[in-house]
Computed example of a mutant assay.
Amino acid sequence: MIRVLIADDHQIVRAGLRQFIADEPDIRVEGEAASGDEVMTRLREMEFDVVVLDISMPDRNGIEVLKLLRQRHPNLPVLILSMYPESLYAINLIRAGASGYLTKESAPDDLVRAIRTVAQGRRYVGPTVADLLIGGLDKPTDQPLHQTLSKREFQIFCKLSRGQSVSVIAEELFLSVKTVSTYRARLLEKMGMKTNADLTYYAIKNGLVE
């Protein structure tokens, strides 16, 4: 039996996902979480085989939760299920350790197939993500700017674009201010930008922040 934890801040979405899975003989929803902090609490309370994780959540967003899960539960498969199209987040999150990426427009059968795939220790890569991966190999210069960042640079990019200061980011990530400043300078150079306002504008324009 595949024990699933569903993490999404919308109750109606969690209920819908639970309903999709209810008839599957080998999959059972064992827990729900409405925030990033609740995900970590549920994982302390019991064991799960797969986490189905949204990106936009209170407390800690899905990107931060994924990083924590890779540190504390390195073998736990994490399937990202998001409203954002694959082109915005999929490559970065798979690079950061996600086992797969689906949009909320995907068919229920795709979700079930993805859960079974990642539960077996394999990655679930749908046609769109596969095309992005292949396209990234063939035409690296055509990638969106944020996909050129390392996973740590992307994490800091997301925080900067949401208006967090370097000192706050340093405290949250247990890094020195100097280290975060170095990452900031590096990602600005990679993206051809000069200020945090440029990062915020890019993030909003590309649907990376709400």
Results as ranks from 00 to 15, higher is better:
Arg3Pro: 06
Arg3Gln: 13
Val4Ala: 00
Val4Arg: 07
Ala7Pro: 08
Ala7Arg: 05
Gln11Val: 07
Gln11Phe: 13
Ala15Gln: 15
Ala15Cys: 12
Leu17Cys: 03
Arg18Tyr: 08
Gln19Ser: 14
Phe20His: 12
Pro25Cys: 04
Asp26Phe: 14
Ile27Ala: 06
Val29Leu: 08
Val29Glu: 05
Gly31Trp: 01
Glu32His: 07
Ala34Leu: 09
Ala34Thr: 04
Ser35Phe: 02
Glu38Leu: 11
Val39Gln: 00
Val39Met: 02
Arg42His: 11
Leu43Phe: 00
Phe48Leu: 07
Leu53Asn: 04
Ile55Ala: 02
Met57Gln: 06
Met57Trp: 00
Pro58Ser: 03
Asp59Ala: 11
Arg60Phe: 10
Arg60Ala: 11
Gly62Leu: 05
Val65Cys: 03
Leu68Asp: 15
Arg70Thr: 05
Arg70Leu: 07
Gln71Ile: 02
Gln71Ser: 09
Gln71Glu: 12
Gln71Lys: 12
Pro74Val: 01
Pro74Asp: 09
Asn75Ser: 15
Val78Gly: 03
Val78Tyr: 11
Val78Pro: 06
Ile80Glu: 02
Met83Pro: 07
Tyr84Ala: 09
Leu88Ser: 14
Ala90Val: 06
Ala90Thr: 10
Asn92Cys: 07
Asn92Trp: 04
Ile94Phe: 08
Ala98Lys: 04
Ala98Arg: 08
Ser99Phe: 08
Tyr101His: 02
Tyr101Leu: 04
Leu102Val: 05
Thr103Met: 08
Lys104Val: 05
Glu105Val: 15
Asp109Ile: 14
Leu111Glu: 07
Val112Ser: 03
Arg113His: 10
Arg113Met: 12
Thr117Cys: 15
Gln120Thr: 14
Arg122Ala: 11
Arg122Asp: 14
Arg122Thr: 05
Arg123Leu: 12
Tyr124Val: 00
Val125Ser: 13
Gly126Val: 10
Thr128His: 13
Val129Pro: 02
Gly136Leu: 10
Gly136His: 10
Asp138Lys: 14
Lys139Thr: 12
Lys139Asp: 15
Asp142Cys: 06
Gln143Trp: 09
Gln143Tyr: 08
Pro144Ala: 10
Pro144Phe: 02
Thr148Ile: 06
Thr148Val: 09
Leu149Glu: 09
Leu149Tyr: 00
Lys151Asp: 15
Lys151Ser: 14
Glu153Arg: 10
Gln155Asp: 14
Gln155Val: 07
Ile156Tyr: 02
Cys158Met: 15
Cys158Ile: 01
Ser161Asp: 04
Gly163Arg: 01
Val166Met: 04
Glu171Pro: 00
Leu173Met: 15
Leu175Pro: 00
Leu175Ser: 10
Leu175Met: 15
Leu175Gln: 09
Val177Gln: 11
Val177Met: 04
Val180Ser: 02
Thr182Tyr: 12
Tyr183Val: 11
Arg184Cys: 01
Ala185Phe: 04
Leu187Gly: 03
Leu187Thr: 07
Leu188Trp: 12
Glu189Trp: 02
Lys190Gln: 00
Met193Ser: 13
Thr195Phe: 08
Asn196Val: 08
Ala197Met: 14
Asp198Phe: 04
Leu199Ser: 07
Lys205Arg: 15
Asn206Pro: 00
Asn206Asp: 05
Asn206Gly: 08
Asn206Cys: 10
Asn206Met: 03
Gly207Asp: 09
Leu208Thr: 02
Val209Asn: 02
